[in-house]
Nucleic acid binder design. Structure first.
Lengths: 149, 149
DNA sequence: CTTGTTGCAAATTCTTTGCATGACA
DNA sequence: TGTCATGCAAAGAATTTGCAACAAG
């Protein structure tokens, strides 16, 4: 489980606040433990249920802070709600998310990054950014009805 | 400019309502005329300014109806706001949007569609959907300060 | 007539913010 | 002691929905 207050963290954390608090750590722990993408509200609810005394706005702030330092990834679902999950690698990443059970698989593909960059450059665009979201029904959910569903 | 009430439209429009109204047509016209992606609120404002007497909810409903029949494309920006634009071809499409002036270029690439499908299938996912958004600074905006900015 | 649309206002939902309180260096 | 996080409540924003009035086949 990740640890914000880990040893090598003093000189790091660029524009961000310099220390982690109990709540901050609790948010990160809960997020890590969950493993998959989760909604702020759901995460908050899970934490309360688990006995953590933490405010909703703190969870919002903590998650956004994590995204700022690239310790978490986020995406918006079709309804416009943000989902978060801890980031495992240091690199920019995409995910394939199951619409039935919510599980996700990180996708590592240089190919797509290249495609995005090349396409944009071809069209004369600079400073390219991309958002790529894949979703489907995972193998588990294709068999029986989804496990978490 | 597209026309909802065009000839071949009686037997079509599947699950959708069977006729277009003055407001509906006005929304489509305004959207077509704008050409680029635009916010519901902005489109509504533009229509009022242009003298159209139309309610905000009607614009919302009309735009979603257009998306339902694939007559318009939509995407959500970083702030979570939906943008719409008329669709030119019958096919599923992606766009490269300028973050400075808001102009957009449709991207037609089988390659990316293939990639998305293949990747998902490789990982055992079925019924794959994808959202791909590219943004950057267009050629015009790279020179002088953006024209519309 | 009957069905579907319109438009306003109210309601919803997610997210952010103001501010007093509290904790840590 | 000063700075920053916290948490609640209030604010904000985008979008949806309830409902009475209305248009058209």
């Amino acid at each position: 489980m990740a640890d914000i207050l880990a040893e090598g963290d003093r000189p790091t954390t660029p524009t961000l606040h310099r220390y982690a608090t109990r709540q901050r750590q609790a948010v990160l722990d809960a997020l890590s433990e969950h493993g998959e993408f989760i909604t702020v509200q759901d995460l908050h609810h899970a934490m309360r249920t688990a006995g953590h005394q933490v405010g909703l706005s703190t969870v919002y702030r903590a998650l956004n802070a994590l995204v700022d330092v690239h310790a978490a990834d986020t995406f918006r679902d079709a309804a416009g709600v943000q989902h978060y999950r801890t980031r495992t690698t240091a690199e920019h990443q995409h995910y394939l998310v199951c619409r039935s059970c919510g599980s996700s698989v990180p996708i590592t593909s240089q190919r797509i990054e290249r495609w995005a960059d090349d396409t944009a450059r071809e069209l004369g665009f600079a400073d390219v950014a991309h958002v790529i979201e894949l979703s489907g029904i995972c193998a588990d959910c294709q068999d029986g009805p989804g496990p978490n569903d």
